[in-house]
């Protein structure tokens, strides 16, 4: 009998790390997900509770993958509360990935949107000069800074912004991105995080003629290009994305404006 890769495979949680009071990283062994490309996601099943799309977090242990989850709805809370030794189901990875250019890259992330950027850093060519802008509302919500520096000791500049100024640069990460882009010298911009932030980053990069890509999040039921929940204009985030070029996004009537609710109704941000 032919095993279908779209059936969840159960994995045992090997470690749980508190990143902030509401964010945890759960690590598990999975050779296939461990080699996910940045921007790809898995559908994560929390038995008896639900299933949700998660960007695949990089692990510092070979052959391991991880999910970094913020407490939000029932399923993310269920995943957050899964202890070491607990079982989760995974299928994937699905979707496309960032097109990593040479030269100097500006990475702009907020919250768990940093996950695909961490994987990008882990797979970037050695000579890529990376500036990572990490945005958070307040200092308690900043995470991954030390891990990024550990993963890449050279050619990585980590800059933290907090909306309330309790750590790093005071202000919104999109403002800092605009300032850095204004200084010039970047060959590419990669962003993942709240969609309104990404819309600004995309617009700022394009206005200066810099190549930009964003990894998009949408309501997803299947991850397979079947249910249509994640449609953005005529495209599906699960199979055409999650990564889209800025030139494509700039023409989108949905990006930064509207998403489909669970019923499929177009809903403004």
């Amino acid at each position: 009998m032919q095993q279908n890769p779209n059936v969840p495979s159960v994995r045992t949680v090997l470690s749980v790390t508190d990143e902030t009071p509401t964010v945890r990283t759960l690590e598990f062994a999975d050779d296939i997900l461990a080699s996910s490309r940045p921007g790809q996601f898995a559908m994560v099943w929390v038995p008896r509770i639900g299933e949700l799309p998660m960007s695949v977090m990089v692990s510092e242990t070979r052959g391991n993958a991880a999910f970094t989850v913020r407490v939000h709805g029932a399923t993310s809370t269920g995943l957050y509360n899964t202890p070491v030794g607990g079982a989760i189901g995974v299928r994937g990875p699905y979707g496309n990935s960032f097109d990593i250019r040479r030269g100097r890259a500006l990475l702009v992330g907020g919250g768990t949107g940093l996950v695909p950027l961490m994987r990008l850093i882990s797979q970037a060519p050695d000579d890529l000069e990376i500036t990572l802008l990490m945005g958070a509302r307040t200092s308690d919500e900043v995470f991954f800074g030390q891990r990024a520096a550990r993963m890449r000791p050279d050619r990585l500049d980590v800059v933290v912004t907090t909306d309330d100024g309790t750590l790093g640069v005071a202000g919104n990460v999109a403002d800092e991105a605009a300032r850095r882009l204004g200084d010039g010298g970047f060959d590419a911009v990669y962003t993942c995080g709240p969609e309104l932030m990404m819309r600004r980053v995309v617009d700022e990069a394009r206005s200066r003629g810099v190549f930009v890509q964003a990894s998009i999040e949408r309501v997803m039921k299947c991850g397979l290009g079947i249910c249509g929940s994640c449609c953005m204009d005529s495209h599906l985030v699960c199979t055409d994305g999650t990564v889209f070029d800025g030139d494509h996004l700039a023409k989108s009537g949905d990006f930064g404006y509207a998403y489909r609710s669970k019923s499929g109704k177009s809903t403004p941000y």
Partner: peptide, 18 residues
Amino acid sequence: PWEGYANPTVIGADNGGM
């Protein structure tokens, strides 16, 4: 309007099914 069921709602099945 109907929201439908909670996930998992769509998964693979053996022998190329869904």
